[in-house]
Simulated scan of single mutants.
Amino acid sequence: MNKSISLLFAYRDRDHSRVFHSMKSLEKQTDKDFHVIFVDYGSSEKNSQTILNTLSEFNFVDYHYVAHPGLLWNKSKAFNYGIWKSKSDYIITADIDLIFHPEFVASAKRLAKPNNYTVFSYAYLQKEETTSDISNLKFSDLKPSHTGYITGSGLYPKPYLEKIHGFDEFYHFYGSEDEDLFIRLENAGLYKKEEERNMLAHQWHPRYPFEENNELSVQPKVSNIRRINLRHYQIARERKKVIPDNQEKWGVCYSKEDLNALLSPDVEYDLSNLSALVDHFINEELPSYKNKVVSVTFRKDKDQKSLKFFLRKMLKQNYQPLISLKEINDKILKKIIFEYRHHNYLYKIENDLRSIKFIIDLRNSSKN
Rank of each mutant, 00 (worst) to 15 (best):
S223T: 12
P244G: 06
D258H: 15
F210R: 12
K256G: 08
K249M: 07
N273H: 02
Q234P: 01
P287E: 09
E195H: 07
L190F: 08
T297F: 00
Y254R: 03
L274E: 13
M199I: 15
T297Y: 04
E285L: 15
Y191N: 13
W204I: 09
I243C: 14
S264C: 03
A276N: 11
K240E: 10
Y208R: 03
H232A: 14
S272V: 00
Q247G: 00
S223Y: 03
L200Y: 01
P265M: 03
K292F: 04
K192Q: 14
L230S: 06
Y191S: 15
E212M: 05
L274H: 14
D270R: 14
M199Y: 15
N246K: 08
L190P: 10
K290L: 12
N213G: 07
I225W: 07
L274C: 10
K240S: 08
K192W: 07
E212W: 00
K256R: 04
L262H: 06
F281Y: 12
E285F: 13
R227V: 12
Q247F: 01
T297R: 14
E257H: 03
K292L: 01
H205M: 03
K221N: 12
P265K: 04
N260F: 06
Q219S: 15
A236Y: 00
K292C: 06
E284R: 15
E212G: 02
L200A: 09
N198T: 13
F281S: 01
P244A: 13
W204V: 12
A261T: 03
N260R: 09
E285A: 15
L286H: 04
A201E: 03
S288Q: 05
V242W: 09
N198Y: 02
V294D: 02
L230Q: 15
R207F: 14
N224R: 05
Q247W: 04
L259Q: 07
Y191E: 10
E284V: 15
A236N: 15
L263K: 08
V294Y: 00
E194C: 13
V242D: 07
R239S: 11
K256Q: 10
W204P: 06
N273P: 13
I225A: 01
P209W: 04
A261E: 07
I243L: 05
N291E: 08
M199V: 15
V293Q: 06
D279P: 02
S275F: 04
Q234Y: 04
W204S: 12
Q234A: 09
P209D: 02
V218S: 12
A261D: 00
Y208T: 09
K256E: 11
Y233T: 01
N229M: 00
S217H: 11
V278H: 11
V278Y: 11
N260K: 11
E215M: 11
L262Q: 04
N224C: 05
D270S: 14
I282R: 10
A261H: 05
H202F: 02
R231W: 07
Q234T: 06
K256T: 06
Q234S: 08
H205G: 02
E195V: 02
E248T: 09
Y191Q: 14
L216I: 10
V278R: 03
